[in-house]
Amino acid sequence: MENFSSRRITRIGLIAAMYAVMTIAIAPIAYGSVQFRVSEALMLLCFYNRDHIASLSIGCFIANMFSTIGIIDTIVGTSATVAAGICIYLFRKEGSSTRLLLCSLFPVIFNALFVGAEITILSKEPISFFMTAASIALGELICVTVIGTTLFKILERNKAIMTAITEKY
């Protein structure tokens, strides 16, 4: 059984809070059929440490409590985050820049499918699943693949930061 030290729980809580605050702070563009969640760049933390799957899932759950879609988003949106986080962690390969870029596509795909379907089904207006999924995918692509991978490639140059991100307990 894994050890859940106070330091580990604190780190999980801090990352969850960062995700939630970053999302809620930009609420007008973080929810709906056009989403631009800069906080999604944090999904790439899962590439370095599996604890971040829990962190980001909790953060997403909290942020989605404020969603314009309603409480159902806490289930659907968080499920997309859990699925993407697990895939990022499972498909990572240490020291591979190409792998980080490929793993950044998991949040794009899962959010486009899960959240795109959710919005299409719950919308009172006739909207196309493909248009909704495409707009969500575009926002995710910009936030995770462009901004996130660029950010983490820069962070990888700093040994102290990478030690903090990858620290195992």
Rank of each mutant, 00 (worst) to 15 (best):
I136P: 03
E167K: 10
N49V: 06
A25I: 15
I142A: 13
V82W: 12
I71S: 09
G139D: 09
N3C: 02
D73N: 10
G116H: 06
G32V: 12
A80Q: 02
I161W: 08
V34K: 14
I147Q: 00
I62E: 04
P28Q: 13
V108D: 03
R92T: 13
F130K: 00
F47V: 06
C143F: 05
L42V: 07
T10N: 04
T132P: 00
F130S: 05
L105K: 05
L56C: 05
E2S: 12
K93E: 14
R7T: 14
G13I: 09
A83M: 14
I26G: 12
F114W: 08
L138V: 14
I71E: 11
M131Q: 10
I165Y: 10
L14W: 08
S5C: 06
L138C: 13
R92E: 13
Y89S: 14
C143V: 08
A80H: 01
Y31V: 08
I15Y: 13
S33A: 08
A137H: 03
T23Q: 11
M43P: 00
R37M: 10
S97D: 11
T68N: 11
R8E: 12
T132Q: 07
I24V: 15
F110L: 13
Y169W: 08
N49G: 08
S39Q: 11
S97Y: 03
F47D: 05
I53Q: 01
E167I: 06
R157W: 04
K124A: 13
V34R: 15
T149P: 01
A17C: 11
E140F: 02
P107T: 04
C46E: 09
I9R: 05
I24C: 06
A54C: 08
T163H: 14
A54L: 15
R8H: 03
I29S: 12
Y169G: 05
V115Y: 03
C143A: 15
K159W: 06
I58R: 06
K124D: 11
I154W: 09
V21T: 00
M18V: 10
A83T: 14
T145N: 09
F61R: 08
